[in-house]
Design a protein around this nucleic acid. Sequence first.
DNA 1: CAAAAAAACCGACCAAAAGTCGAAAAAGTA
DNA 2: TACTTTTTCGACTTTTGGTCGGTTTTTTTG
Lengths: 200, 200
Amino acid sequence: MKKGEKRKQELLQIAYGMFISRGYENTSVDDIIEEAGIAKGTYYYYFKSKEETLEEVIGMMIDNETECAGQVLAADIPVPQKIVGIITSVRPTQEESTIEGALMQPENILMHSKIKKKLMASVLPLLTQTVEEGIKEGIFSCDNVPERVRMMLVISNEIFDEEDYTEKDIEVFIDMTEKLLGAQKGTMGFIRNLIGQRNE
Amino acid sequence: MKKGEKRKQELLQIAYGMFISRGYENTSVDDIIEEAGIAKGTYYYYFKSKEETLEEVIGMMIDNETECAGQVLAADIPVPQKIVGIITSVRPTQEESTIEGALMQPENILMHSKIKKKLMASVLPLLTQTVEEGIKEGIFSCDNVPERVRMMLVISNEIFDEEDYTEKDIEVFIDMTEKLLGAQKGTMGFIRNLIGQRNE
DNA sequence: CAAAAAAACCGACCAAAAGTCGAAAAAGTA
DNA sequence: TACTTTTTCGACTTTTGGTCGGTTTTTTTG
C-alpha cells in the first residue's frame, strides 16, 4: 500500500511537467506512460481518465499556492502588503508561466480556466479575511467584501495573466482597488512594483 | 460559384446549432455531415479543420452582436443607457445561453473563451467611444478610458456569465462602475433592472 | 453544342489517442 | 507454502479528425 502511492506521485509529477511544458491537449497518455516507463493499464489503474489526472495535477498546484498564501496571511506584516502578497503567491509561478508561456497558450485554455476557478475558490476566503482585517484597522471601508474581493481577483487574473498589459492597466487597477475597498488614494500604490517586475 | 457559398452557410448554420446545444467538443464532424447529408470530403472542401469551423461560427455570432451594439451606439438616447444597451446586446442571447446553459458548461470552455476574446475586441472600441461621449457631456470624469472600459467588460463577462451571481454582485458592480468612470452615485443604478431580468 | 476546365462531392482509408480487459507477475499474509 | 490482494502488462477496441484519388456536376469557352 506504499508503493502504489509513490507511483501515483511519480505519475502526477510527470504529468504536471508535461502539461505545463507542452500543454494538456498536446500531451497524450502514451507520452506520459512512455516517460514513466509503464504500460497503459498501469496508468489507468491509478487514474480513471486523463482528465482526472489533470484535476489532480491542478489540485497539487493549488495546494502549494494556497499554502504560500496562508503563510502570508499569518505573517505579521501590514495589511496592504498581505493583500499583494496573497495575490502574487497565487499568480502562476516562474516555471508555470515562463516555460513558453504555456498557460496562456490557446491550447491550454481548459487547464488554465480550471486553475483559475479552483484558485479563486481557495484564495477568496483568505483575501476576504485580510480585507476585513484592514477594515477593522480603518485602512479600508466598504461593504460586501467578498464580492469586491472577487472582482479584484477576476481583474487581476484576466488582465495580468496576458502578457500585453500596460502601465495604464496597472494604474487603473490600483485606482480601482482603492476605490473598491474604500481606501485612501496611494494606499495600494506599491502594487506597481510587484506586478511590474515579473514581466520585464 | 453561387452554390458553394450557400452550402457553406448551411453547414455553418448546422454547426452553430450543434455547437450551442451539445457543445463544441461533443459535436463530431461526423455528426455535422450526417445532419447535412454530405460526405466527409465535402465538409473538408469547405473547412480546413473543425476548429476553423468554430472560428467562423463565432465570427457569425460576433458580427450579429456587434451590429446590434452599433445600432445602440448610433441611437439618440442618453449615454448611460447606451452603455447598458451595448453591454447587454453583447451578452449571450436567449438561445445561446438558455439551451442547457451550454456556453458555461465545462465542455465548452474553448468556445466560450474564444467568444469572449473576440467580443471584447469588437465591443471595446464602441464602449470606449460612448464613455468618451459621456465625458464630454460631463457625466463621467476619468482618464485611461479604454483600460477602464476593459475592466468593466471583464467583470461583466466573468461575474454575470455564471448563473450564481447575487444581488450583492450587482450592487458592487454598479458601485464599481460609477467609481471607475468617475460618475455621480446613482448614475448607473438602472443597470440593476437590466441585468436582473435575464436571470429570473 | 461539344469539349475542356473548374467546382463540388464522394467515401474508403489513415493515424492518433483515450480507454478496456483478462491475464500474469509481485507483494503481502496466515 | 498456499492464499489473497495489489500492481502491472500490452494487445485490442472505439472514436474522431483528417486525407486523398477519383467521380460527378456545373461552368466556361472555342
